[in-house]
Simulated scan of single mutants.
Amino acid sequence: MIPLPQTAALVAASADSTSAGVADGIAQWAIQVMEALGPIGAGLIVFLENVFPPIPSEVILPLAGFTASQGSFTIAEAILWTTLGSIVGAFVLYGLGRWLGHDRTVWLAARIPFVDPDDIVRTVAWFGRHGKKAVFFGRMLPIFRSLISIPAGIEKMNMLVFGLLTAAGSLIWNSIFVVAGFLLGENWGVVLQYADVLKYVVIAGVAVLVTWWVVRTVQRNRARKRERELDLTR
């Protein structure tokens, strides 16, 4: 295992070569937490990332993999604890949405400058139609992966379903970045160069799936309508 000061220095050098000062500062802080608390520290940071979206998972997750590559803990522990952190963080915001409820959320939105309460109503209505897909795929989109938990709570989505979808989406996203950081080792910062590309791939994939679902639904509805018309003419 590389001692803490040397590990922090390696992280700082990697971050400087691929990103600006903010990522550098977060990286040094994160590696110290993970070296001190082990995989639990990785889970704690990911929990905070879910509750406070400005903390970028694209930095934290590769760092967890990098720290695992130094022998601080295993890659399996890194994936397990970061996924648990994602799930617990998601349930905190789910609980917030459930406590607020629909009416209270709209009431609060009406009192926040530049926020249109109608947008909240439309968002909740949209979630009512696409909630399961939104929770699963939303775990792979920055900021959205945290905020999607709130309308899930507002709509009182089944907690077991919410937890399973959150776990599945988070496991996929976390594993990609943790494994990349583990394999790249000291060059973990290379992941940051491709994080945006990966996000666009996910967005494109979601768009394709949503389009397919809409087309399939329209075709099915038309088929049912034709069947009803044929029944009336018989």
Rank of each mutant, 00 (worst) to 15 (best):
P5N: 07
P5S: 04
Q6E: 15
Q6W: 01
V11Q: 02
V11A: 07
A15Y: 07
S17M: 13
G21Q: 10
D24Y: 11
G25A: 14
I26H: 00
A27H: 03
A27S: 14
V33N: 03
L37T: 02
G43I: 03
G43M: 00
L44C: 08
V46F: 01
F52W: 13
F52P: 11
P54M: 02
I55P: 07
I55D: 01
P56W: 02
E58V: 08
I60K: 05
A64Y: 09
T74R: 02
E77G: 04
A78T: 11
A78Q: 02
A78N: 07
I79T: 05
T83H: 05
G85S: 02
A90S: 15
F91P: 00
L93T: 10
L93W: 03
Y94V: 06
L96A: 12
L96F: 14
G101K: 04
G101E: 05
G101W: 10
H102M: 11
H102D: 14
H102I: 06
D103C: 01
T105Q: 04
V106S: 02
V106D: 08
A109D: 13
A110N: 15
R111V: 10
D116H: 13
D118T: 14
D118N: 13
R122V: 11
G128A: 09
R129T: 08
R145G: 00
L147E: 00
I148S: 04
I154T: 09
I154R: 07
E155T: 13
L160S: 05
V161H: 01
G169D: 10
W173A: 06
W173K: 00
N174Y: 09
F177V: 06
V179N: 00
A180F: 09
G181D: 06
L183F: 11
G185Y: 13
N187F: 14
V190N: 08
L192M: 09
K199S: 14
K199L: 15
V202M: 13
V202P: 05
G205E: 09
V206K: 01
L209Q: 14
W212C: 00
V215N: 07
K225S: 10
E227K: 09
E229A: 13
D231W: 08
L232E: 12
T233C: 10
